[in-house]
């Protein structure tokens, strides 16, 4: 597919912009983290669109954000596990 550009994104309705970004980010994340790709992509989509576009163009910045997201996700899950089982 052709690369996603800022102008393409701006032309899309707001509701579609995150979806477009997610469709591009997901395969890149899935290649490295097949089990967590859906959750990681969901987390990253909360970031600004301009930053997400930059991440699509720069694998290094994507990977550093993915690593950050995994750390946050694991901390979040660890917190859940500490809750008493009632």
């Amino acid at each position: 597919p052709e690369p996603l550009t800022a102008s393409m994104l701006a032309a899309a309705p707001l509701m579609d912009q995150k979806q477009l970004l997610g469709e591009r980010l997901y395969p890149m994340i899935h290649a490295h983290h097949p089990n967590l790709a859906g959750k990681i992509t969901g987390m990253l989509l909360e970031i600004d669109n301009s930053e997400l576009l930059h991440m699509l163009e720069s694998p290094e910045s994507l990977h550093s954000k993915v690593d950050e997201a995994i750390a946050v996700l694991q901390a979040h899950q660890a917190k859940e596990c500490q809750q008493p089982l009632v």
């Binding site: 997610g22 969901g42 996700l73 979040h76």
Partner: peptide, 26 residues
């Protein structure tokens, strides 16, 4: 809010409208 949200993060599945969209303010 201080509570944990077990439904977070909204998972993205290709081809499926992302559920997190409804939480984003224009």
């Amino acid at each position: 809010a201080n509570g944990t949200n077990i439904n977070w993060p909204p998972e993205f599945c290709p081809g499926v409208p992302w559920k997190g969209l409804q939480n984003i303010d224009p």
